[in-house]
């Protein structure tokens, strides 16, 4: 469950955005589900707050209409991949 540097940065962003101080960002498994009853057990308000933080930090905007969005929010790994792909597509 080693995090890549990008995943570590995203983990810190999530922990900061959601005020999850009981969670060490380094402990978030990139493959573990973040929402629902498992893992971090996040809810839709958390998704909104993460989206706002990502928009501020990376200027990447999510759309609930895109099929890929639900998948992107599933795990730390997916979210990082999605955001990095968007960022790299710009440059």
């Amino acid at each position: 469950m080693n995090q890549t540097p990008e995943q570590s940065r995203m983990a810190v962003l999530i922990v900061d955005a959601l005020n999850l101080e009981d969670i060490d960002p380094a402990d978030i498994d990139p493959e573990e589900l973040m929402f629902g009853d498992e893992g971090l057990a996040l809810d839709s308000i958390d998704a909104l707050e993460i989206a706002v933080a990502i928009a501020e930090e990376f200027a990447v905007h999510f759309s609930a209409k895109e099929e890929t969005t639900r998948e992107a929010f599933a795990t730390l790994g997916n979210l990082t991949d999605f955001v990095m792909k968007e960022v790299n597509a710009r440059t």
């Binding site: 005020n19 999850l20 101080e21 009981d22 498992e38 057990a41 809810d43 308000i45 958390d46």
Partner: peptide, 18 residues
């Protein structure tokens, strides 16, 4: 956190748990 998440609507999970 895990024990509470099993029993509660995620909305009521404290953020943070200190």
């Amino acid at each position: 956190r895990r024990e509470m998440a099993r029993r509660l609507d995620p909305a009521f999970l404290p953020r943070p748990i200190r």
